[in-house]
């Protein structure tokens, strides 16, 4: 295959898989207003549960089990912050730390599992697409199907009464309370759903690369946040569905830029630094732009452009 095309395809495939985590953050960070720092752990949890169930011979069940594990993890994070009085950032970090032991436990004490001979939904799709023109793209097809399902779900869900209540919780919790809805409830539901997407994302990545390590999710929250903020450039305002599509686009662009940078000999270990820098720029740029007149004024004053 043409090398340029191959880079694009890998970026598309990885972008689509990680866009599920981006959509999770879209729900928790953009809608619910909670920065869920358990994302890394939940991603790895989904990967581990998905791998263990798939290895035991249940490829379809592995996806459902991974998502269920994500729901559980999200519930714990939400419970800690709504019912136990733990700051939401801290709740995420605590769960993230605890999950590491859980993940190793699920993987039977090993920190690495191989799925080289395991039947997964990817191998099923490969067999299904065998001898069709789509055959080389089977991984991308699987990822695209899941992304489409999640987007369709979000497009519907965020317009329902429950979805509106979740969005309002991030916007004005007092207003939610005066609508006779408990914001603790909406936070719990929102984080359960978002973490099921994160876990799904992890399970798919592990199964597509046929292996899982305990630290497979490390740095995911920053990478996903970077993607989300890149996507926000294209669809910051507007309908919720458009913004969700923007989030997916952001994930793909992020991977594409990263793949191109690798081609130009950027070492692979730079990924995390690059994503951190992107997040810093994306979040601080609007703030700095707002401060710009003050900086200018100070500069002018120092230069003595004004009379004392």
């Amino acid at each position: 295959m043409n090398p340029v095309l191959s880079i694009a395809q890998t970026a598309l495939e990885l972008g689509l898989i990680s866009s599920l985590t981006v959509l999770a953050l879209f729900l928790s960070y953009s809608m619910l207003g909670v920065c869920d720092l358990s994302t890394d752990g939940c991603f790895a949890l989904g990967a581990a549960v998905g791998a263990v169930v798939a290895i035991s011979g249940h490829p379809y069940l592995s996806i459902i089990a991974a998502m269920a594990a994500g729901v559980l993890s999200g519930f714990v994070v939400a419970f800690l912050q709504t019912k136990m009085g733990i700051n939401s950032l801290l709740a995420g970090i605590i769960v993230n730390t605890g999950l590491y032991s859980v993940i190793i436990g699920i993987m039977g004490g090993a920190s690495l599992l191989n799925m080289n001979k395991t039947e997964t939904i990817f191998t099923i799709m490969r067999a299904l697409l065998d001898k069709t023109p789509l055959a080389p793209y089977y991984k991308t097809v699987v990822a695209a199907i899941f992304v489409a399902l999640v987007i369709a779900f979000l497009a519907f869900f965020l317009r329902t009464r429950l979805g509106l209540a979740i969005r309002a919780t991030g916007d004005n919790p007092d207003m939610v309370r005066s609508s006779s809805i408990n914001p603790a409830f909406t936070t719990i539901v929102g984080l359960c759903i978002s973490n099921s997407f994160t876990a799904l994302s992890g399970a798919l990545l592990a199964q597509s690369q046929k292996s899982v390590t305990a630290d497979i999710g490390s740095g995911m929250v920053t990478i996903a946040l970077a993607s989300l903020l890149i996507g926000g450039i294209f669809a910051f305002r507007g309908k919720v569905t458009r913004r969700a599509l923007g989030a997916v686009l952001g994930a793909i662009i992020f991977r594409l830029v990263y793949a191109v940078a690798l081609r130009f000999n950027m070492p692979a270990f730079m990924l995390k630094l690059v994503s951190s820098v992107i997040v810093v720029i994306a979040i601080s740029a609007p703030y700095l732009r707002q401060r710009l007149p003050d900086f200018r004024r100070r500069l002018m004053h120092k230069r003595g452009g004004e009379d004392a």
Binding site: N172, V176, S179
Partner: peptide
Amino acid sequence: LGTAPNMTIEENLALA
């Protein structure tokens, strides 16, 4: 205090 600013008028009303 009584409304969600980033949501539309109809969405606010629907919740209420």
